[in-house]
Design a protein around this nucleic acid. Structure first.
Ligand code: MG
Ligand code: MG
Lengths: 518, 518
DNA sequence: TGTTTGTTTATAAACACCGCA
DNA sequence: TATGCGGTGTTTATAAACAAA
């Protein structure tokens, strides 16, 4: 009972515990309580699969890989039709996605294009069959060294859905089931494999969504819509309970803060600024592009690709593999602790240090998508935050943070891997466990060293070294520094200018703050 | 999208979403993934029920109400035996519980006795059939005005279990399935209806467990054991997944903090001191005794008995029922907010203001149970915390807090009900959203007024009034005070001496701090 | 009355680390 | 010594209860 596992290192959403790929489960949802039927998924030749639509009882989804022959499609449909007979499902939705092994890697700017082209008809959930999206298909910028075959992507081929007998669209509105597309006539087959669940956690997607806005502020409905736009899986395939999960995550995690408009009429969700790592989908794509130079890497590697990005692996490479029997296990929130795993901010700076062109692109895209933001109020609330020394903050972490962080044993995370995107909320200073005056001298509280005060430089297991100052054998080299280092210093100082409200730095996304990238 | 529901006000654990009374579900657990069979529960005469044991495939649990005749028991068993034949379950566990309507109310000290008599054999999980518990049946103290028929409780009648053919105790050890009682020969039928799930949330039970210790510190295993001892349901009936839930709650909620022994060999779970309301099972029982003078109250009322105990209902009784269109919905953590819903601390002081005898009892009991604590180290770690001004803290809230908290609209919680035990973690100062220098002038952050700085006096919806200072219509009477009121003042001040480590105040539990109760 | 939004609890599971057999 | 397993700890997913607007 020690040690605490380092964060499971999730780049991809961890394997789903239950509805593996949402191919199981039935409609009903929150209304009916049947124990979820064993999932009706059939496989046909060429990888074609036919599965029940999760929220429409009379509908089935036909997943057609890129590589499938039309013959196979027809064959599968015919077989299905023969099998079901007249009482078969009334509607079929044909989906075509990329048939590559790793369905969630992207060529350059694939998502950027989609993001910029998020021309959702603004009448809210009234999106109907006539919803057509204009894709500025390739943004003609081939930044980065790895413009492989994905550059000219398959996702430009749409494939409209053929709906067989589009009648009897019925019930299925029990609770969480206000799925916008009622008729489901036309589907657009996006770049992403629509039938595959995106590999991002809800937390990650919410961050993507909110950070896609200049003011980093979204209503719940807008978050829904952003996710549906960027991951059609959730609009077309997922059970409606995913919205419940979104709300759950918003409420549960302190990373997300609900703001209320001055008149108290609207609620907006924001990201706790000091915890915001400004992740966007672009970042992920760029990251993938960087870490996946060739597409022929082992599948296992692709799924588990890890980037820990502890900025400085300060432990000497000869660090003993046997952890020195110290208390740790991460989390274990400190009483006097101040910062905890600011990993990703550093990570970000590592993240973008190699190809600068992406930043240009990134910036351009975010500006481009401005004109598509319509729902959430922005300037009408006079967001004129002073932007006090804001740039100082992010600029303080160049690609290489100060070296005085040494002497802390960074517990070897995973297998020494180096590539993971950590979307999980970071615990920032002033956490809930800041207990001022308790006497914990007898238990080692994992010694939060404050040497690297400007933050964003601390290694992963900052909190978990065993000082054993009081009674322990005190063999730990990482001496406990849990003096009363002032929270004020940390909060008042380094975090000063994070107000990201206004146009000042709202849509810059790092490129302006890392000078060597320009 | 406004307003945020006030905390659902859970005294009882909210109605279970899934395994309603754990009478469903099968063994297997984390190993097997079958969608949980429809639960094999049969009812017989006199309310006798026979259900499958949740974690032992060849065992069934026979629930025998107080009122059942022996004839009926024999009849039910005979019928069951005939039904199943030779291939029936090998083992039956007979459980006898109180058959009253509300199975979870207690007479005076019923739990206290059980608590004091928690003489679990200390060999850990090796508890076997010979485990017998000595119940100092009645503690001969009839404190409080409501010593009704429950005083001489049924739970003194034990009823040993008859095990039919105790052979073939097999598999069922998949993962979370290290259920201690392997043979299950002898069960003690405790005061609680063993077959009924306790109405307390995991969070509440963990608090009960940890607070039952003088040093308020327990290992995971001890928490397990405490719960099993005090709520045999979890040992005998519940699926083994409940331990997963315990761990989940410990990790998830910041209320619970994991400490590590100096040698890094042990982990102890504590309650974040500034959030600890020192709830024990005794408190609940006393509370029930107070709020349920007669047992004939409507069942609905019993289940929903609510005690909000916002110390001062400072809103003038003429407060308009229509909330003034302000932002609120609770939670909505403040950026500059300091305290949030310290409800229960006041609540406690309300809680005990009427019958002083319980405190004497309470104290006595906790001392009595000292000799039964054996596992978690206490003094060997030299817990000599200075106890600096500790009593000041809890004493600072007499039954009536200072009255300067007026002018905040306490949103009417529920139906103006007044009796609920809120076990949920309270958010204390220095929460995770303490963002120092961001400019949120355009959104109303629900205006945390700091007038009542000694804390424990803030009304429920402190955070949610709409100041609308900047752009809004500014009709809200609660003016925003979100100036940079120093966190230090709050934390350094009122919360000063909460170190509850040592014998000093560890096992006092309130009676010493409320002078008018002596 | 029914829907949307928000909060909280319960449950299952994935996954990591550790001690130990 | 290697290795697997069980206990512990962290995190995500999902469903649901319930409250408020
Ligand atoms: Mg939140
Ligand atoms: Mg915790």
């Amino acid at each position: 009972m020690r040690r605490s596992p380092t964060r499971p290192l999730i780049l991809k959403r961890r394997k789903l515990p239950f509805h593996q790929n949402a191919t199981d489960s039935q409609p009903g949802e929150s209304g009916s309580k049947e124990p979820s039927k064993p999932a009706a998924t059939q496989s046909f030749s060429d990888g074609i699969r036919i599965m029940d639509h999760p929220s429409m009882s009379d509908t089935q989804v036909v997943v057609i890989p890129e590589t499938a022959e039309v013959q196979s499609v027809i064959g599968a449909l015919t077989a299905k039709d023969n099998e079901c007979g007249a009482q078969g499902p009334n509607k079929l939705i044909l989906l075509s996605g990329s048939g590559s092994d790793n369905k969630w890697d992207y060529g350059p700017d694939s998502q950027s294009a989609a993001e910029g082209a998020a021309t959702r008809s603004t009448e809210g959930h009234k999106v109907k069959a006539e919803t057509t999206r204009s894709f500025p298909v390739n943004k003609d910028i081939n930044c980065g060294p790895f413009d492989d075959s994905l550059t000219d992507l398959h996702w430009l081929g749409k494939m409209s859905t053929c709906a067989l007998e589009p009648n009897s669209t019925k019930q299925l509105s029990s609770k969480e089931n206000q799925n916008p597309l009622q008729t489901f006539q036309v589907q657009y087959a996006p770049q992403q494999p629509i039938s595959e669940r995106p590999p991002y956690s809800y937390i990650a997607m919410i961050q993507f969504a909110i950070n896609s806005r200049k003011n980093r502020r979204m209503t719940l409905k807008e978050i829904y819509m952003w996710i549906e736009d960027n991951f059609p899986y959730y609009r077309d395939v997922a059970k409606p309970g995913w919205k419940n999960s979104i709300r759950h995550n918003l409420s549960l995690h302190d990373l997300f803060i609900r703001e209320t408009s001055p008149d108290g009429k609207m609620s907006f969700w924001t990201i706790r600024p000091e915890a915001n790592r400004y992740l966007t989908l672009d970042h992920v794509y760029k990251h993938q592009k960087r870490t996946l130079p060739d597409k022929n890497t082992d599948f296992k590697v692709e799924v588990k690709e890890e980037v820990v990005c502890v900025p400085i692996k300060c432990e000497t490479p000869k660090a003993p593999p046997k952890r020195q029997a110290s208390s740790s296990q991460r989390k274990q929130r400190l009483v006097h602790s101040v910062n905890e795993e600011p990993v990703l901010l550093c990570h970000e700076s590592n993240f973008f240090d190699s190809d600068a062109s992406t930043f240009q692109d990134n910036l351009r895209i975010e500006i481009a998508e401005d004109k598509h933001e319509q729902e959430s109020p922005d300037r009408e609330f006079s967001f004129k935050s002073p932007i006090k020394s804001s740039s100082h903050f992010t600029l303080s972490t160049p690609s290489k943070p100060p070296s005085h962080v040494a002497s802390f044993k960074v517990t070897p995370v995973g297998k020494g891997s180096q590539n993971i995107l950590d979307f999980s909320p970071i615990r920032t200073p002033g956490g809930p466990t800041v207990t001022p005056r308790h006497d914990y001298t007898t238990f080692s509280f994992s010694s939060t060293p404050f040497k690297d005060l400007p933050l964003f430089n601390s290694p992963r297991e900052l909190l978990t070294s065993a000082p054993s100052r009081v009674t322990g054998p005190a063999e730990s080299p990482t001496e406990c520094l849990k003096s009363s280092c002032s929270r004020e210093l940390l909060q008042g100082g380094s975090f000063s200018g994070l107000d990201d409200d206004d146009l000042g730095m709202a849509n810059i996304s790092w490129s302006e703050f890392i000078p060597q990238l320009k």
